[in-house]
Design a protein around this nucleic acid. Sequence first.
RNA 1: UGGGGGAUCGUUCAACGGUAGGACAGCGGACUCUGACUCCGUCGAUCUAGGUUCGAAUCCUAGUCCCCCAGCCA
Length: 682
Amino acid sequence: MDFIRAIINDHMKTGRFDGRVHTRFPPEPNGYLHIGHAKSICLNFNIAADYNGLCNLRMDDTNPVKEEVEYVESIMQDVRWLGYDWDDRMFYASDYFDQLYDCAVELIRRGKAYVCDQSAEEMRQYRGTLTEPGRESPWRGRSIEENLDLFARMRAGEFADGEKTLRAKIDMASPNLNMRDPVIYRILHTSHHRTGDKWCIYPMYDFTHCLSDSIERITHSICTLEFEDHRPLYDWFLDELGVYHPQQIEFARLNLTYTVMSKRMLLQLVQQKLVSGWDDPRMPTISGMRRRGYTPESIRNFCERIGVAKNDSIVDVELLEFCVREDLNLKAPRRMAVLNPLKVVIENYPEGKAEEFEIPNHPDNPAMGSRKVPFSRTVYIERDDFMEDPPAKFFRLAPGREVRLRGAYFITCTGVVRDAKTGEITELVCTYDPATRGGDSPDGRKVKGTLHWVSAEHGIEAEVRLYDRLFTVPNPAGDGEGRDFTEYLNPQSLVTLKSCRLEPSLKSAAPGCTYQFERQGYFCADEKDSAEGSPVFNRTSTLRDSWAKIEKGGDRTKQKADPAKQAPKKVSGPRIDLGDFEKIDLRVGLVREVSLVEGSSKLLRLMVDVGEGRLRQIFAGVRPAYREPDDLLGKKVVVVANLKDREMRFGKSEGMILAAGEGSRMGVVTLDGDPKPGDRIS
RNA sequence: UGGGGGAUCGUUCAACGGUAGGACAGCGGACUCUGACUCCGUCGAUCUAGGUUCGAAUCCUAGUCCCCCAGCCA
C-alpha cells in the first residue's frame, strides 16, 4: 500500500468525503503523453477503481498559446489505449471559463483580488527574492469598484496583452513566493482551440486547477511534487471563495534511466528532427512505445511495480524492459528471422528438394497452434552463430561442429567459403543427418546449440529496425556537467537492417502484430511503414542474452588480472566500453601551424590538415612537453576525427590528437613513413 | 542565506516502537529443440552523531546531503 492510499483510507475512516473517491487526470494538451504520464494515469484511474470511485479526464487548457487539438486527440487515444475509460467525464478547464470568471469577480468583491498595471518586468522586481520579501504593487489599493470595472474592461478587450493582470491580494512578504500576489488572469489576444475568440483573458493554472477540481467534486487531487509549494495557494482560493474543497496530494514524478522525460526536451528532439516524431519508437511517449511494440498491460504492470512515493527517484529502464518481456513472452507467437544472414549450403541434401516442418507457435502453449516452415538445400543462419575459431564456451556452429537447425535437422559444418579478395566468409558448407528429421536424434546424441534458420528459396527479405536506448548515459538531463542532453544521444539507438531473411509466414504479418523472433527478441510490424505483403519490423526488446554476458565477462576477468588497471580512475562524462573504440575515427593529420594559447600554460593551438581541404583547429594540452612548439610543425599525428566540436574559452576545438604520458614526459604520437593527411588508421 | 519536500540493498518500493521484506539488476546452479522462459540458491541497505526505550528505520535533539520554488507556463 502506498502513502496516497493510506491517506485515502484515513479519509474513509473519518468520513471526510462521505466515503467517496473521485480523481482526475489533468494533462495540458501541449505535447504528447509519455511514460511519466502513464504513472499518473494508472495512479488516478486505479485508485478510483480500487475505491469504487470515478476518474475524470480533464484537459488543463488555459494557455491557448501552447495548446493544440492534435495534442488533445493524441491524449485521449493514449489514455484509451492504456485501457482506461472516462465514460462521459471528458472535461476541459475551458468549459469552466464562465464560472472561473465569476469566481474572479467574487474574489474582487471580497477585496481579495485587484487589477494590476505592472509590467512583467516590474512585477518581477517587486516580487523580491528567495530571501527578501517583495514590495506591494502601487495598484494594490484600488477600490473594489475600480477593480470590477477594470476587470470587466480587460475581458472586453480594451487592453493589450500584458498591459494589465488580475492578481490575488495575499501577502507580498510571504516566504512562499507563490503567495506573493500571484497573477490569476492575464490578457492574451489569442484564439483558443475550443472557445475560439470568446475570451481575450485567460486564467492561470493555480486559480483554474483548484476550482476545476472543486467544480467536478474531485476528492483527491493527485499531482507531482513540484506543486507542493502551490498547495497553500490551492487551498487559499477555495477557502476565500468558500467552495467545495478537495485534498491535493503530491507524489514524485517518474524518471527513467537512459531517457529524458521533460516535455521541453521531448519537444526539442522532435523539432530538431533528432527523432522521427513524437511516435518515434525510441521516444518514451506512449505513442512511441505503442509503435515500438510495448503493450498496455506491460506499461500498467510497470507502473504498478515502480510504486508511488515522495522520493526523487530514477527507475532503471531495465525494469520496463523486464515488464514487456514478461508480457510478450506469454503472448508473442514465435517465428524465425535471420537478421544478419550467412548462407549455408547443405551438400548432401538433394538439390531442388523442399519439405515443410510443422513448428509450434509457442513452446509452452500448445493452444497457440503451429505453422509450417519450408526447408531446402540452402538456408540462411545468423552470422553470429558461426565462429571459425570459437572460444571455450561458444556452442554454436564452427568447423567440424554439429548443431541443430530448430525443428529441422542436425547439421555439421564441413567447409568455409570466403571471398577471394576480402577474406570474408561468404558461405558455409554443411552436411545434414537425415535421421534427425524434425530436430530429434534417434540415437539420443545431444547437440549444444540450436540455431534459427530461414530457407533461402522460400524466405522473404525485409527491413528490420533494431532500436536501443536513446541515450548513452543513465541521466542525460542531469549529468551535473552542464552539458546539453543531446550530446548524449546514442548513435546506435536505431540500426536499420535492410536485408533480413524472414520465414515466409511473416509475409502476411499485420501492422501492429508482435512476434518473438527466436533467440533475437520481440518484434512488432510497424504500423506506419509496413505495406501489404511486405512488413517492416521494429525491435521492441531483445531477449535476455546470457551469451552476451559471458562474452563481456571475459573482459572483466582480464581486467582483474591486471592490477594496474584497477587503480580507481575518475571518469567524467559518458562511460566508455570496449565497443566504443570501434567507433573512433582515427586519421592521419599533418600539423601545419602551431601557436601558443594566451592565458593557458597547457594548451597549444594546432592547425591540422586532415585531408579535408581545410585545416582543423585543435587545442591540445601538450604545452609542457614541447618547450619549442615548432617542434610539432610538419609532424604527422593521429587525430580523432569524429568528435563533436568542443567550445573552449579560446575557440572551437575540432578534434583531439593522441598523446601519452604525463607533464613534460608526455609526447604526441607521431607517424613516420608517408601516410597522407586524412588516411584512416585502424 | 527564505520557504517547501526528501534521505532504507546497485535501483525501486515496503516495514508506522518488536526478526529490515519484495521486485528489478548482479552472482551461482538446475532445466532446456530459443544461451529465452521456468525453477532453486546467493550477495546485498536504514545519511551522521547524540538521546529516549527492555527494544528505534520508525520517537526526540543537532548536523549533513539531495530535490523544488523568484513565468503574465502547467
